[in-house]
Write a protein that binds this DNA or RNA. Structure first.
Lengths: 225, 225
DNA sequence: CCGACTTTGTGCATCGCTTCACAAAGGGAT
DNA sequence: ATCCCTTTGTGAAGCGATGCACAAAGTCGG
């Protein structure tokens, strides 16, 4: 089935990919504090995961640790960054400049790690022309031109639910294959296009479920606080 | 310690819980359009999941379908809402009224489904006193009082990374056991406290990973060492 | 009332992720 | 150089989620 000939397996598990940014953040903090090497135990603690899981995750990238010592912080930062594609510059366009889009444009975490906001687009004439985080908001009509001319490869959708699918279709048609969707809808996209969803309302509902259960569910009564 | 549940198995899989809000949203849309019953196939399509998975998910709540017909939309909406705890009113406090906190306060999805923003808190004197979405921003000093007096059971943390852990400790000490964290840090909390994390930067990094693979893909040479 | 048709609910095989436990690998002291 | 100590990398078991495939259960037309 799988050819074991290739030493480097490019098929990194999805669950591992989702944790790499976590490790990277912890490592950056350590690097800033001047830590030179770190054991899997310590790094796992900082990232809030099990140490065996951490070691297995890192083993998918290669053998970057030293037995009896640990991992070199700087080197590991570089390796994870490279694996995640953060050594290159990513142009991001934010579509929909409402409250959320505005917050995203101002969010420092974007710029800090290889992501650059290359365009802000909205349909509302009231908003078009505004300057936000040093960028001019452009009309949604020029969406395709912005994507093509500025090499946008990742689009953040922060529009109302009703507009999301149509705009999604347009950015996909313009060649974008990575979308971060904040609109509360299930987007349908062709194969080969990645959509990640962030849904505030769903997160709250999951919390409410657990909270209800903790409070005793339908059967028990809350008795102390 | 475990309450002996009588008939219904209270142990609904976490993966199922995470999908219930998705089904609920699709069902609400159908109810608005006047659809009376829906098959697992159609509902699954609307929610973007496999129909067998949907049926198995719903079977964890009980046997609410009719073979040969499907599910009654209104009834299923009620059952899922009840299971998620949305039939009661949840008071939410938003801690940190920066760009993101402001966007959250204005986000309609909160109020719409059983969640009520009961407090906005910030440490910045510049922001305290502002009116946002009809609410007055209060100083972080009164955090504990707000939580206790207004029965806040869910707290949304939208603060800078550095302040998050300390504020988390305070809301936990005040009795809150459900936290939605937007700050890019791993919060440490005692057992029994639920923390869900939303991290925009991590989502982007995961997209970048896949985008890089698509772009470079099979042709890109890797260092062999 | 019956038989054809539709759709649910679920047993089962499978898959991927997690966790444990330990041999292998390296560093440092003597 | 050799022994001891630390820590990595990984085989293997365990666990939960997924999806197929089908019997059970219900509807509807005749």
């Amino acid at each position: 089935m799988k050819s074991p000939s290739q030493s480097r397996d490019r098929g990194i598990p999805e669950a591992t990919v989702a944790r790499l940014p976590l490790y990277l953040r912890a490592l950056n903090g350590m690097a800033e504090r001047g830590v030179a090497t770190v054991s899997s135990e310590d790094l796992a603690m900082a990232a809030g995961v099990n140490s065996a899981k951490l070691r297995k995750d890192l083993s998918h990238l290669g053998s970057y640790g030293t037995r009896g010592v640990g991992y070199d912080v700087e080197y590991l930062v570089y390796q994870i960054s490279r694996e995640l594609g953060l050594t290159q510059d990513w142009a991001v366009a934010i579509v929909g400049v409402g409250n959320l889009g505005r917050a995203l444009a101002n969010y420092g975490g974007f710029v800090s790690r290889g992501f650059r906001v290359a365009g802000l687009l909205d349909a509302d004439p009231e908003v078009v022309g505004d300057d936000i985080a040093g960028l001019n908001v452009e009309h949604i009509d020029v969406l395709e031109a912005v994507i093509e001319r500025r090499g946008v490869s990742i689009v953040v959708l922060a529009t109302p639910a009703l507009a999301a699918q149509e705009l999604c279709d347009r950015v996909v048609a313009a060649g974008v294959t990575s979308i971060l969707n904040f609109a509360p809808v299930v987007l349908s996209v062709p194969d080969g296009v990645d959509v990640r969803k962030v849904d505030l309302s769903i997160e709250l509902q999951i919390l409410a479920f657990h909270e209800q259960r903790k409070a005793g569910g339908p059967l028990m009564a809350v008795d102390s606080q």
